[in-house]
Nucleic acid binder design. Structure first.
Length: 465
RNA sequence: GGCCCCGUGGUGUAACGGUUAGCACGUCGGGUUUUCAACCCGGAAGCGUGGGGUUCAACUCCCCCCGGGGCUACCA
């Protein structure tokens, strides 16, 4: 037995600028397969359409892929750069009689089919100028796609049109280009979306005419939106770029995406990327379409956030702020290292996404503006906030670590006979400017004695004046 | 219309010719609690409530129907 040669996979995004989550999952599965088997993943950009295919669009796709940490082995090669090979093979096909020129228009084809009981279109070779090139499809037999996920799928040749493989001006079309590329790039496994299943017999037919061995195919079920229909670009969080903006972590996205259409035997839900690489198998991918559910992603992302080291947490937050809010990034990065660290420590368990982190700890880096609405929420009409008592107690605290602060304030609660909430919430508003923050003792300790006392004092004068 | 794919709770999935059909998100109730989360405990909720078969036995296999989706371009 020869040892099996390492597989060679390819990911072929359409360069419209956005990496949609369906495409991202396809990229992930390809990547997992390549990683898990010692094979290679190559990228091919599908772009015979000059309108959509701009260098900027392509770069956006590549950037999203890099951010997701799905690396590939070779740089993308534009289809324009591959064109000569396509036209060369096209010429061979025509010369060998596998393809022919046919000036028939779409209307002609429709009429022909109507007259022939809906059978696959068969044209007459006529080498007129401007005639498109069609592949000659056999009249009998069937073309079978041996799909790794679905098993054999049979397409009778008689119902298949002699399809166009090149335009009248000689430019090659998708089904020719992709087959030529797969052959020339030595692709062994094609893992792509289900929307390509119907194209596969065409590509198989081209490959056969070319005399090239077919790759293995696996067609992934499509992803649907929350309404059960095809996932639309209008859906929130429909692309990796949007997920990034919303503060999700690449590792969480990889985990979530992997679970969309695939599951482990033992129901493991949270998997590191290493585990994914090790455990993923294309044969276990399901056959039915799945619905993208951002809520579960949020939950999963929270789990990954909590598993982050403080260093990673700080680094990720810093980068997120720099990208989306440079001013805040400046305030964060200008602060002492220990304050940054403490800030991360007290929010780590509370935030589900990076986007949620900053509002919770902003008060440690930026002086909060007074918020009348927040005060109204914590004011008790009958007594007023016991801020003065709290201030005294904090002044007299032995230290200013969370434990000392807690002891001092608990004494206030005890002595005043008030509910803990009535004591703590006003302090929270005084030092953070909002009613929502990390734990009050942690928040005070993180802010430090000096700033805490000062903010409470000024809140007090504000309230009395 | 033609060709093709799919159908386990609201969502993602697991298992299996014989199980009380499991797990997770969400949801509901309770607990913890200084806010919001997180966390802990518990509950409700599913095999397309369709029709025929095969079988001692089908959610599981076959046919039909119904429902959803894809392709049907001189797009990719």
């Amino acid at each position: 037995m020869n040892p099996p040669s390492p597989p060679r996979l390819r990911f072929a995004p359409s360069p419209t600028g956005a990496l949609h989550i369906g495409g991202a999952r396809t990229a992930l599965y390809n990547w997992l397969l390549a990683r898990g088997s010692g094979g290679a993943l190559v990228l091919r950009i599908e772009d015979t359409d000059r309108e959509r295919s701009t260098p900027e669009n392509t770069e956006q796709i590549l950037d999203a892929l890099r951010w997701l940490e799905l690396d590939w082995d070779e740089g993308p090669e534009s289809q324009y750069e591959r064109r000569e090979r396509h036209t060369g093979r096209l010429k061979e096909l025509v010369e060998a009689g596998h393809a022919y020129h046919d000036p028939a228009t779409a209307a002609d084809v429709r009429a022909w089919k109507e007259a022939n009981g809906g059978a696959g279109y068969r044209g007459e070779p006529r080498a007129e100028p401007g005639a498109a090139v069609r592949l000659r499809v056999p009249d009998d037999g069937e073309t079978v796609v041996d799909d790794l996920i679905r098993g054999p799928v049979r397409f009778p040749n008689a119902t298949q049109d002699d399809f166009v493989i090149a335009r009248g001006d000689g430019t090659p079309l998708y089904n020719l280009a992709v087959a030529v590329d797969d052959a020339e790039m030595g692709i062994t496994d094609v893992v792509r979306g289900d929307d390509h299943l119907s194209n596969t017999p065409k590509q198989l037919l081209v490959l056969e005419a070319l005399g090239a061995p077919p790759p293995r195919y696996a067609h992934l079920p499509l992803l649907h939106g929350p309404d059960g229909r095809k996932l639309s670009k209008r859906d929130r969080a429909a692309s990796v770029q949007e997920l990034r903006d919303l503060g999700y972590l690449p590792a969480a996205i990889r985990n979530y995406l992997a679970l969309l259409g695939w599951g482990t035997e033992d129901d493991t839900t949270i998997l590191t990327t290493e585990e994914l690489v090790e455990r993923f198998s294309i044969e276990r991918v399901g056959r039915s379409s799945a619905v993208f559910d951002e809520r579960k992603l949020r939950w999963l992302n929270g789990r990954f956030m909590r598993a982050l080291s403080l260093d990673d947490h700080e680094d990720l937050l810093s980068r997120h702020l720099r990208r989306y809010s440079p001013e805040d990034a400046g305030a964060f990065e200008a602060a002492p290292a220990d304050r940054r660290r403490v800030a991360c420590e007290i929010v780590r368990d509370k935030a589900q996404t990076l986007e949620e982190v900053w509002p919770l700890i902003r008060f440690l880096f930026v002086e909060p503006a007074p918020d009348p609405a927040a005060w109204r929420k914590v004011m008790r009409a009958d007594t007023g906030p016991p801020l003065a008592e709290s201030l005294e107690a904090l002044r007299g605290a032995d230290g200013f670590d969370a434990g000392s602060v807690e002891a001092a304030l608990e004494a206030v609660v005890e002595r005043s006979g008030r509910k803990a909430k009535d004591v703590y919430q006003p302090i929270r508003v005084a030092i953070t400017g909002t009613t929502v923050s990390p734990g009050i003792f942690d928040s005070l300790a993180a802010l430090g004695r000096e700033d805490s006392l000062r903010r409470i004092e000024s809140a007090l004068t504000e309230l009395n004046g």
